[in-house]
Design a protein around this nucleic acid. Structure first.
Lengths: 244, 244
DNA sequence: GACCCTATGTAACCTATCGCACATTAACCT
DNA sequence: AGGTTAATGTGCGATAGGTTACATAGGGTC
């Protein structure tokens, strides 16, 4: 089984030891992840986990009245479908591709089988899940206390960290859906950021031109999540933290 | 080892099979959980997990400027300190006793040892963790879209579900800290609820007098969390969902 | 019973964001 | 090239909630 490069661009897959790769890689299926694709809806029994390679997936909650809010984002640092191994088999949120690209999927039973070996994969995905929890918690706080401008900065940074370029293909309308605010609010915030020379945009495209300043303008939430995610996932191939 | 009743009031402990109880119960220490006690601060290396019996613990995030927001609440349906088995050993939030009572604590290594047996305890705590994730996600959404009145209803219901009585010992100031809003906002919302005959309160005490109406006035967030938590934890002693 | 502290009530003002209505234009299609 | 559609810009009034500043009173303490 050739260890083709793309699948190693997903950090979880890349951090697996050789034996685990041998067991799992034959079952990985490459899948297109075009913008707007829905990986699962609330309550769906999950059949696959998805390992993003160069795409971004948003976990978002849509309310009865149609209003929505992003709970967290997943890029090639993680995987989509944690409920499979957490035991619930479904979530109350929707998984939506927010930035197109490709990924790999693995059938649920294959993942669970490997998870149950109690080895590196289990350790990795549990640590990743904790990083995800941190992100959700910080999103809750950010939604409560920070301005649209600050949240837009945070959102751009989270996206940027998960993309190979400084260029986002994204309408303000979609960003508004993610942040759970009006589209006009995003237009105004984006206008301000552009006037400050932090971003440049045209219809459906945003380019970050001054990342340093973007970080300054963002609320603390970005840094908190980034730092904690790095802490949890950097030592990804360190000795299993679960051993005594 | 006698299976004294109080420890079985914690649903996780109660759902363990006899063998697991035999291994764990000797190491459980009863601990007082007075209102205001801090179980851990952000970044603290956790030494124990806590199993609430008749108290409520809030996980809340405190920002640089002192503003705070509750991320989730834990009662006797769960446990505090999931980072221990998730692998991070610390979180970015604070665990604060919001309603006094007692609980049991278990030293980290003892828990991890049992977790690593890959049995019922692992299954239980992972499912519980997913329930916690649902609660956090819904909190994020609620913070974005719902009014203080609705959130107060949700918060009262979540607390009520974790208490043996309809009586909360709680100042409006504290509730405001949890919800991440001004104290005056809570005063006004509580006043409206009282005028509607849903609650009755006096200094530091709140009594829910019409739960049905409280549920009507709450946003959908309470019901979503409740339903999902029940789904995940009700079949607590069902066959290990992780087996193929 | 007097006292004091803390919890609660109230009010005037400020601001961010919403809700709505519309103008403008970039980019795509034929 | 022109038409069409979707994306963006702008300008209101409405409003929830924040900010500040006090007034009031419950309930424990001496």
């Amino acid at each position: 089984m050739p260890q083709s490069l793309p699948r190693l661009q997903n950090h979880i897959l890349a951090a697996l030891p050789p034996e685990a790769r041998e067991r799992i890689f034959p079952y990985l299926e490459e899948v297109a992840m075009p913008l707007g694709k829905v990986l699962y809806e609330p309550g769906d029994k999950m059949r696959y986990v998805y390992f993003p390679v160069d795409c971004i997936v948003s976990l978002l909650y849509v309310m009865e009245d149609g209003a929505s809010a992003e709970i967290s984002v997943v890029g090639n640092e993680g995987l989509v479908g944690i409920s499979l191994f957490m035991g619930g088999e479904s979530t109350s949120s929707r998984a939506l591709v927010q930035s197109g690209g490709t990924g790999y999927r693995l059938a649920g039973p294959r993942l669970i089988d490997e998870f149950n070996r109690h080895g590196q994969l289990m350790s990795l995905v549990l640590r990743y899940t904790q990083a995800l929890i941190t992100q959700m918690a910080q999103t809750a706080v950010c939604n409560r206390h920070h301005s649209i401008d600050q949240q837009l900065c945070r959102w751009l940074l989270l996206s940027l960290d998960r993309l190979p370029t400084k260029h986002l293909v994204m309408t303000q309308e979609l960003i508004a859906n993610m942040l759970g605010v009006r589209r006009e609010g995003v237009t105004e915030a984006a206008g301000r950021l552009q006037r400050l020379g932090v971003i440049e945009y045209r219809r459906g495209h945003i380019e970050v031109t001054n990342r340093t300043k973007l970080e300054e303008l963002s609320c603390e939430c970005y840094a908190v999540v980034k730092k904690e995610t790095d802490r949890l996932l950097k030592p990804a191939s360190s000795p299993n933290q679960l051993s005594l």
